[in-house]
Amino acid sequence: MVSDAVTVAREEASPSLEGPRRALPAILPVAMAIVSSVSLLLLVQTSGMTTTGYEVKRLEQEREDWQQANYQLAAEVAYLKSLPRIEKEATSRLRMVPATDYLFVSVAKSPEVSGDGDPPLVQTKRPTVGRDDGWSQELLDWLGSALGLRDR
């Protein structure tokens, strides 16, 4: 009874094993293609990541280089604006000499200089003490009124 049952089972099983055996030549290339594709994708991704990593590093270095160049340029600008350099340029190239005497002169206050900006280069209000009403002042007053800067 037992052997009969086994025989029956074998007989029943044999047609179902035939299917995969027949399908194997078709599945194998597909599986290989899938595995290859996945591997390729992984390789591409890994390679892309590596490239991006190097690119990021390169860009960081580039940023660092530009930043350092900026600091260097800022220092150069500071040297060019420094007082020793200005003095050297003024005396050696432009042949300027230090001012030994100076005068404050009164001029009319123009609308442009009024407001809360930096102090004007020249005094805008005539001092009450030490007022000089000589010919020069009269000339200045006349010029001022002629140019419409002040009322006569």
């Binding site: 100076y102 005068l103 404050f104 002169v105 009164s106 005094q123 209000k125 005539r126 001092p127 003490v129 030490g130 007022r131 000089d132 000589g134 020069s136 002042q137 200045l140």
Partner: peptide, 12 residues
């Protein structure tokens, strides 16, 4: 600006 005579109002 100066407030005393000496440096005011005598343009050259």
């Amino acid at each position: 600006p100066p407030t005393e005579p000496g440096k005011v109002g005598k343009p050259a």
